[in-house]
Design a protein around this nucleic acid. Structure first.
Lengths: 336, 336
DNA sequence: AAAGTCGCCGAAACGCTTTTCGGGACGCTA
DNA sequence: TAGCGTCCCGAAAAGCGTTTCGGCGACTTT
C-alpha cells in the first residue's frame, strides 16, 4: 500500500542483523559502539548497515530513553522581522546540541497556540521555547506543563519562569552614551508607538543616561508610529529647537529622519547626528549616510534561550528573567 | 533522575485505563471514538483522561501506522527574506493538514545539509521540502530517498522531481504589460546581479512583452547589484535617453531609482513610472511615491509545495516543475 | 435452545536498547 | 588427558505506549 515509488519500506535493524547473520541485539551493539562485540562481527555489521543505508529509527529510540531530542518553538508571528533572528539563533544552538526544532506559528491567536501546544506535547518534545511578538509580558503557556519552557522576546508574567528578553533600557542608554561620547549635547528623541514597551523602555534608558551626564532631552519624546513616514514628518518640529543629535526609536524612523534632513539641506553627521535601533540590515543598507544603530542582538537571544532550555532540562536553571545586552554599531551618521 | 521539577512522568494510556477500571484496549477505543464501547464506559474513560490531562504519545502511534505526521523543511538560508514567506505558507498548509514542521537551516553548506537530511530521515519524517536560495536549479538531495521531496524556490536539476518555483519570466512580462497598459512606451530596465537567473528571467519576460507590443527596450538591461545604491547610481545613465518608465529588478533597486529621480526633480509617476519586484513591504512602505511592485507570491509557493508533498505522499503527484504566477500590486509610482 | 449482538479483554505488533543467560573456547590443574 | 573454572561473544527476551485483531462471556432475539 504505502510502499509506493519513493517508499520501499525503511530498513530496520532487523534487516541489517539478518543480512549480517547476527541477532538484532548484536547488531545494535555493533552500531552503537558497545563493547561486547568482536571487532570482526562489528565490521561485518557496519558494512551491511552502510550498504543498506540503514538509519536508526529515532522514534523507537525515543520511546525507550524517554526523550526525543526535539524541542518545540512556538512563535507568535513569523512575519515580524524580530522572530527570524531569534529563530536562527535557537536553531543554531539546538543543531549543535543534536536537537531538532519543531516550528509552530500561532499568528497571535491564543486558540491556535493551545492547539499547537498540545500537538507538541503529543510529539513529546523535550522542551519549549515561546517567542512573543512584543516585549510586553505575556501569560505563561499553562500550569504544570510536563516539559520546561523558556520565554523569549516577551517574558512570562510569572517571574519564576525562565525568560530571555532584549534590554531596551540599556539600549536607550548606550545610544545616548555614544552620542555624548562623540560630542553631542542637544539630543532629541523620536520614537514609535507609545503602547510598545520597547518605545518607552528605550526612552527611559536614554533619559537616564542624559541625566547622568547632566543633560536634558531637547523637547519631548515624540511618540508616533514605527514608520519612515513618521520619521520624516517629525523633523519639522525637531528643527524648531537647536538640536545636534536625534535618537530614533527604530531604523525605519531614523531613515525617515535622514531623508527629511537631507531634503532640508541639514548635513548628517556634521550638523546633526542620527542613531537608530535594531540594526536592520536591509533598512540600513539604503541610508545615506550609513546609519549608526543599536543592535539588540536577537540572534544571541535565541541562542541564550536555547542554552537555558538545555540547562532547565538538566535542572541547572533556576528560572527568572535574563536580559541580553545590546551593542552599538557605529557608522557614518554619528561619525566624526 | 529525569523526573525533576516540570517532569513527573508523562501520563500513559495505561494510567488512564487503570484508573477507569478498563483495559488499555478499551481505553484506546473510547478515546479514539471507536464504536465497540458502551457510552457509559466511554464517558468514564474520557473523564479520567481529562482529569489526568492525558496526551496520547504520537511517537508510539507513529511506530504503528508507519507515518509520523511530521515533515522536514530544509532551507538554505533563513536569513534571506524569501525563505520566510515560503516557510509561512508551508507551515500554514501543514498545520491545516495536521502535520508538524521540523525546521533545519543548512546555511548554504552541503555538509550540513546532508547531516540534517539524515537527522530528519532518522526522525522518520513523512516527506521533505527543500527551499533553495537562488532560483537556479540545484542537484537533488540524494538518490533513492525513502520519502518524497518537493523542491521549492530552486528547482531540482532532475526534471522528474517535483519542484515549485517562482515565475520570473511572467513577472517580467506583466511588469511591462502593466506599464504599456498605463500608456508608457519608452521603457528602460535596471536589474540586479546578472548571475542570478531571477534577473535574466525577468529581463527575458520583459523583453518578450515589449516585442509583442512592437516596442523596443530603451537602452540595455543595466545589470548591477540588488541594492538601492545601484538603483541610485544607474539613474544618470538612464536619463541620457528619453524614458517614460523604468522596470527595476527589485524593490530595493526601485527605491534607489525613486530617490535619485526625486533628487533630480523628475516627477514620478508624471514624468517617469517606476515598477519594482518582490512587493517587499518594509521597503515599499518608505517609498515616495508608493511603489508599484510585482509580488512573486512566495507564500502561495510555500503552500503549493506543501500541497504537492501531500499529493506525492498519496501517489497523486507525477512530479515536474510547477510555476507560481506573480501578480502586480498597483500603487502610485505607476499611477495615472 | 441455537444463533446473533454487544462490550470488553488479552495479546501481538511496531523498531529499538538493554539485560540476562547460555554455550563455546581456552587455560589451568591433577 | 580429563575435568573444571573463566571469559566472551552473541542469542533471546523484556519493555517503551499505542492500535488492532481474535476471542469470550453475557445478554437479546427468534
Amino acid at each position: 500500500m504505502s510502499t509506493d515509488a519513493p517508499g520501499r519500506r525503511q530498513v530496520t535493524l532487523r534487516d541489517v542483523a539478518q543480512l549480517a547473520g547476527v541477532s538484532v541485539a548484536t547488531a545494535s551493539k555493533a552500531i552503537n559502539g558497545k563493547a561486547e562485540v568482536s571487532p570482526d562481527t562489528r565490521r561485518r555489521v557496519l558494512d551491511v548497515a552502510e550498504r543498506l543505508s540503514f538509519t536508526p529509527n529515532a522514534l523507537a529510540r525515543a520511546m525507550l530513553d524517554g526523550h526525543t531530542g526535539t524541542v518545540g518553538l512556538l512563535t507568535h508571528d513569523l512575519e515580524g522581522r524580530f522572530s527570524l533572528p531569534i529563530l536562527m539563533g535557537a536553531e543554531d544552538a539546538f543543531g549543535a546540541g543534536r536537537s531538532s526544532v519543531l516550528l509552530c506559528d500561532s499568528r497571535g491567536d491564543a486558540i491556535r497556540e493551545q492547539h499547537h501546544l498540545s500537538t507538541l506535547l503529543g510529539r513529546r518534545v523535550d522542551g519549549l521555547i515561546v517567542v512573543g511578538s512584543q516585549t510586553d509580558a505575556r501569560p505563561p503557556l499553562g500550569r504544570d506543563l510536563p516539559v520546561p519552557v523558556v520565554y523569549t522576546y516577551a517574558p512570562s508574567t510569572d517571574p519564576g519562569d525562565a525568560s530571555v528578553v532584549p534590554d531596551n533600557v540599556t539600549a536607550g542608554r548606550i545610544a545616548v552614551e555614544h552620542l555624548v561620547a562623540t560630542g553631542r549635547r542637544r539630543i532629541a528623541h523620536v520614537s514609535g508607538d507609545i503602547t510598545y514597551a520597547a518605545a518607552t523602555d528605550r526612552a527611559a534608558g536614554a533619559d537616564a543616561a542624559l541625566a547622568e551626564h547632566g543633560l536634558e532631552r531637547v523637547g519631548p519624546v515624540r511618540y508616533g508610529s514605527w514608520s519612515e513616514a513618521w520619521g520624516r514628518s517629525s523633523v519639522a518640529a525637531l528643527l524648531e529647537q537647536d538640536v545636534d543629535a536625534v535618537v530614533c526609536g527604530s531604523d525605519q524612523i531614523a531613515r525617515g529622519v535622514l531623508d527629511a534632513l537631507h531634503d532640508r539641506g541639514v548635513r548628517v553627521p556634521d550638523d546633526v547626528a542620527v542613531i537608530g535601533f535594531d540594526n536592520w540590515e536591509p533598512m540600513i543598507a539604503g541610508c545615506r549616510p550609513a546609519l549608526t544603530s543599536i543592535d539588540m542582538n536577537f540572534q544571541v537571544m535565541g541562542r541564550r534561550a536555547a542554552e537555558r532550555l538545555f540547562a532547565r532540562l538538566e535542572g541547572r536553571d533556576p528560572g527568572g528573567v535574563e536580559t541580553v545586552a545590546p551593542r552599538v554599531i557605529v557608522r557614518e551618521s554619528t561619525g566624526g
